[in-house]
């Protein structure tokens, strides 16, 4: 993905990303995307879906900044 890890906050961030959330991000009822993630505590990789294997999962996205 081009410039995913931008070094400077893009001037058009609001329009480009926030505007697309309502129409393009998975909505209630849609299948939840899955893929590998790395557990920070152990370094082990596992599918994100392991979180909801035995019950509902609450997933917050974020970063240090």
């Amino acid at each position: 993905m081009d410039n995913y890890n931008y070094a400077s906050f893009p001037l058009d961030m609001d329009d480009a990303v926030f505007g697309a959330f309502r129409t393009q991000a998975p909505a209630a009822g849609d299948p939840a995307p899955d893929g590998p993630v790395t557990d920070l505590a152990t370094g082990q990789r596992a599918p994100l879906s392991a979180l909801w294997r035995s019950g509902p999962a609450v997933i917050e996205f974020g970063s240090y900044t």
Partner: peptide, 14 residues
């Protein structure tokens, strides 16, 4: 988005 939250059910649906 930078700080969104999802709840996903056991069946794998949002």
């Amino acid at each position: 988005l930078p700080n969104m939250t999802y709840i996903v059910g056991q069946g794998g649906r949002v």
